[in-house]
């Protein structure tokens, strides 16, 4: 299991995250937490929940960055991050127990919690901080791409998508098959020049990020006055204006 599937799946399910419209609301964070506390594997615990150092397991987190362009004001970018379901997932191959695996049929990277010894090595191997060891259960937790929703016959068809995608108020999260060049998500990625995170590490993430569109473009040309107020006074201005009616 610890090997990657011999032939990479044609289907590559993943998320496409639009950095141009993510407002950083953390809705995807808590809906993910809620769903995954009730579903797949051990619940996501919260230690010292009401104390000085609360620390719980989350599968999705929102960072906020500022970027200073060469010209113009600083831009703020809210940046959601969960497992990118990498094609060359280093977290899978390092796992000594086979608990960490990439599904052959759709490429989802999962942890089989019954086999996980909680060594933490996969979290070390992941560049993106996508794995967190649950302090109560002692097993590795990560985004499951809501594998227990997306095929779930007990859910209405329209709800067979990840909890975070379903809840995102801004519509900044898209789910689909990135292996199919004609899928909506693949088209979006093509149109918007979707990008990989830390491509230099060779993980080949499936999830893509749509970059923010250009901001703070130069001001438009000013309007031209219909009359020279100083010369014509209010009356002249009014005449010129009402001529239009």
């Amino acid at each position: 299991m610890t090997q990657l599937p011999a032939t990479p799946s044609k289907k590559k399910l993943g998320l496409v995250i639009d950095l141009d419209i993510c407002v950083g609301c953390h809705a995807c964070v808590t809906s993910c937490k809620g769903w995954n506390t009730e579903n797949y594997g051990a619940p996501l615990s919260d230690m010292d929940a009401y104390g000085a150092d609360p620390s719980g397991t989350f599968l999705n987190r929102i960072h906020s960055f500022e970027v200073q362009p060469a010209e113009g004001p600083s831009q703020t970018i809210h940046f959601p991050k969960s497992c990118l379901h990498c094609e060359d997932a280093p977290c899978v191959t390092v796992c000594p127990t086979g608990a960490s695996y990439k599904r052959a049929e759709d490429g989802i990277v999962l942890v089989n919690e019954d086999a996980c010894i909680g060594c933490g090595l996969c979290a070390w191997a992941c560049p993106y901080g996508a794995r967190e060891l649950d302090q109560a259960a002692g097993v590795m937790k990560k985004c499951t791409l809501c594998v227990d929703r997306i095929y779930n016959q007990n859910l209405p068809e329209e709800d067979r998508l990840p909890a975070c995608v379903r809840t995102c108020p801004a519509g900044a999260r898209h789910f689909g098959d990135l292996g199919d060049p004609d899928s909506d998500v693949s088209r979006l990625v093509a149109e918007r020049e979707g990008m990989d995170l830390m491509p230099e590490l060779g993980t080949k993430p499936v999830n893509k990020y749509l970059p923010p569109k250009p901001k703070d473009r130069p001001a438009a040309e000013p309007l031209s006055p219909i009359a020279d107020l100083q010369a014509t006074g209010l009356a002249g201005w009014l005449d010129r204006l009402l001529e239009k009616l």
Binding site: D18, D20, I21, C22, V23, G24, C25, S64, P73, S74, Q75, T76, I77, H78, C168, P169, A170, G171, A172, P212, K213, K215, D216, R217
Partner: peptide, 26 residues
């Protein structure tokens, strides 16, 4: 905001602070 930005409409934020909605403002 998500809908109109996706459609290509422009969002302008007038705010001393650039976070949240103002962060996604064009």
């Amino acid at each position: 905001i998500g809908k109109i930005k996706t459609r290509g409409a422009k969002v302008i934020g007038i705010n001393p602070i650039r976070s949240g909605y103002n962060a996604v403002a064009d």
